[in-house]
Computed example of a mutant assay.
Amino acid sequence: MTDNIDTSYQPTTSARRLTLFSLLFILLTAAGLYAVYDQFAERSISFDARLIAPQTLVAIGALLLVYFISDGLRLHFTLRALGHCLSFPTIFRLVFINLFFSNVTPMATGGGFAQIWYLNRHGVPVGRATAATTIRTVLAVLFIFSLTPVFLLTMDAFDGQTITGDLGVALAIFILLYLGFFIVLLFRTRWLIGPLSGLLRTLNRWHIIGDTRHQLWQFKARREMLRFSRSFGDYLRGKPLFVVLSILFTALFLLSLFSFPALLIYSLDYDVDYLMSLGLLVVTTFIMYFSPTPGASGISEGVFGSFFSGILSGNHLILVIVSWRLITIYLGMIIGLFVLQRELIKTRRNPG
Rank of each mutant, 00 (worst) to 15 (best):
F158S: 06
G165Y: 00
V339G: 05
Y9P: 03
F258Q: 03
G194C: 04
I329R: 10
G336M: 02
F253Q: 13
M107V: 15
I5N: 14
G305N: 01
F187D: 03
T164A: 06
T109L: 12
Q39L: 08
I321F: 03
S22W: 04
R213F: 07
T133L: 04
L23K: 01
I209Q: 11
L254C: 01
N103P: 12
L248D: 12
L340A: 09
L263K: 04
S22Q: 04
F174D: 05
A132W: 05
L319F: 11
F232S: 15
V104Y: 05
Y330T: 13
A108W: 07
M107T: 14
W324Y: 12
G198M: 11
S313F: 01
M225Y: 07
R17Y: 14
R121A: 02
L64A: 12
G198N: 07
T56H: 04
A221Y: 01
R121Q: 11
G112N: 03
D234G: 12
S231A: 15
P240C: 11
W217P: 05
S313L: 11
G123H: 03
F304M: 11
A132S: 15
K220M: 06
A170Y: 10
L75E: 00
R50P: 01
S277M: 09
G279Y: 05
M276S: 15
F307T: 00
R136M: 04
G310A: 11
A59D: 02
P195R: 06
L65D: 01
L255A: 14
Q341I: 10
L179D: 07
I209F: 09
R227P: 03
G194V: 14
A15Q: 11
L94V: 03
T284R: 07
I247H: 01
S102K: 06
G302D: 01
Y274F: 15
I334P: 02
G168Q: 09
R230S: 12
F187W: 12
M155W: 08
P106I: 06
L65C: 08
C85Y: 14
V138C: 03
W191C: 08
R80T: 11
R128D: 14
S231M: 08
A157I: 12
T133G: 00
F308E: 04
